[in-house]
Amino acid sequence: MEPIRSGADTASNYATGSTRATLSPFVFPIAVFLIVQAVSLGVWRLFVDPAMAVWRYYPQPFGMYLFWGILVLVFIGFNFGMAGFSALKQPLRGFAATGLTLLLGFVIPGAFVYGYGLLDPAFTGGAGQGATGLIVLIGFYGFGILATGMAGWPWSDSGLNQAMGGLAQLASGACLTTLGYFLLVYPNLSSTAAPHTVLLSLPVTIGWFYSVIVAWLTTFLIFDNWPWSMLKRRSHVAFSAFAGNFLMGTAIYFGFLALIRSYLVPGEAIEKIGAALPIWAAQLGVWIVFWLIFWANVAGNFPQKFGPFWNRTIRFILCWGLGIVSFEFYTRWFAERILHEAPIVSGFSGDPLTWVDLLNFVMLVYIVYFDFFGLSKIRNANIYN
């Protein structure tokens, strides 16, 4: 099973059962949206909320463990295709996969901070937790693109079974992630790195690389892996998808910064944010990513009936438009009033990466691990098509 799909009506692929509430294609995504919001807000109230948290672990180590939970979900759902869990019935399958994800999501970053950190000061203490969390920035693309836009190539053509193919993807993703991390991130964090080794400042790295992730998920999820899919050979599709997202992501990065400076962030907030402003390309991008994942996996990738050009154009306008509107709603009201995040300036608040990545994690757990447990969509009654 693929955890993030392109194509039609993903949600309707899940079997209907007597324990599920059968909903119309219009009500189904609304119900999933509300479930994701409610569970995420509950987690926020327990561990994050600056005013109301029962156990407050924000910004660290909550951010580190959250980001690694997402990456472990990529391992289990993307690279291994739920191997080892698919034989279990729901909800046992969901609880088992979630339990392993949480376990590894604590153990792996803990090994970096409390193990490797003894050898490298960049990975110790609170700064080390941030450094460990940033591995996920590179890893989400390094591992995720292999199983999606690259369709598992070359391992998918080698005759390996799912588990062995997953291990091969894991090894390849580890190489890509290590290379990207030590080229782009580590020189900004290590006290021993020479100034000339810093290719991009950390704020630029975060904003630019997240824009590459936006390009990847836009092309794969709502553009059906276009334009890379126009190529005939699988190897050419794989190479063009991997490299092409960097070119497209660069254009997106500069477009995001123009939007942020001109319309989305108040001038006084821009002045206060200062040199860290490039990070806000990622803060905007994460909202668009939420809607891309939601649209392809929950909302049936509507529309499907107008031909490829218009289908993709409408999806693009809807997902990116909802992302921009959500960014504004969050920063202008929701972050301060509901999540109790401190204002940057009056009327502008929040750190979208933490909240929206929590939404993304909860949504993917519900989709991938629990198969929308408790809900199903009426078959053969899709009002979108």
Rank of each mutant, 00 (worst) to 15 (best):
A296V: 08
S24Y: 07
M1L: 14
P278S: 04
A83I: 02
A299T: 08
S262K: 09
F256H: 15
L73K: 06
Q37P: 00
L231T: 14
Y57M: 13
I30T: 04
K89S: 12
G130A: 12
Q162E: 14
V48H: 07
G139D: 11
L137Y: 08
Y366T: 00
L322C: 11
S229E: 12
R337I: 09
L102F: 07
Y263H: 13
M82G: 06
S190H: 01
Y366W: 04
G105D: 02
A111C: 02
S156G: 03
F47N: 07
I35T: 04
I317S: 05
L184Y: 01
E336R: 13
L358F: 11
K232A: 15
P109A: 08
G115K: 08
K272C: 01
W280N: 13
A281F: 09
V204R: 09
R233G: 05
L102H: 01
G347P: 11
L160R: 11
W320I: 13
K232D: 13
V286M: 08
T98I: 07
C319A: 14
F85R: 15
T16M: 10
W287F: 15
V286D: 03
W355K: 08
I338V: 15
A38Q: 01
S86W: 09
F309C: 02
M82P: 06
I344M: 12
A11T: 06
P308Y: 02
A174K: 10
F290A: 10
P187T: 02
G94P: 02
V113S: 05
T132A: 06
L277I: 15
V43L: 12
A131Y: 01
N188Y: 00
R56A: 07
A11L: 01
F306H: 14
D371V: 06
G249R: 05
G300N: 01
A53M: 06
V43N: 02
A96K: 07
F334Q: 09
F306K: 14
T132L: 07
D357V: 07
I222V: 14
N360L: 15
M164H: 05
V74K: 05
K89C: 00
T124Y: 00
A296C: 04
L353Y: 04
G130W: 13
P266T: 13
L88Q: 09
W153N: 08
L23E: 03
A282D: 09
R45L: 15
A87E: 10
V204K: 12
L104M: 12
D157G: 04
M82S: 10
A194Q: 14
L160C: 01
F316I: 10
V107T: 04
V36L: 05
Y186L: 05
I344W: 09
P195T: 13
I213S: 10
I293M: 15
F209R: 02
T19M: 04
I378H: 07
Y330K: 03
L359W: 10
T22W: 00
F309K: 10
L339I: 08
W68Y: 13
D120Q: 11
Q60T: 12
V345M: 06
A171L: 15
V39F: 01
P278H: 05
I4W: 08
L119C: 02
A147S: 15
P227L: 08
T101M: 15
Y210A: 08
A381Q: 12
M1D: 11
S326Y: 00
W44D: 02
G244Y: 06
L264V: 03
G374K: 04
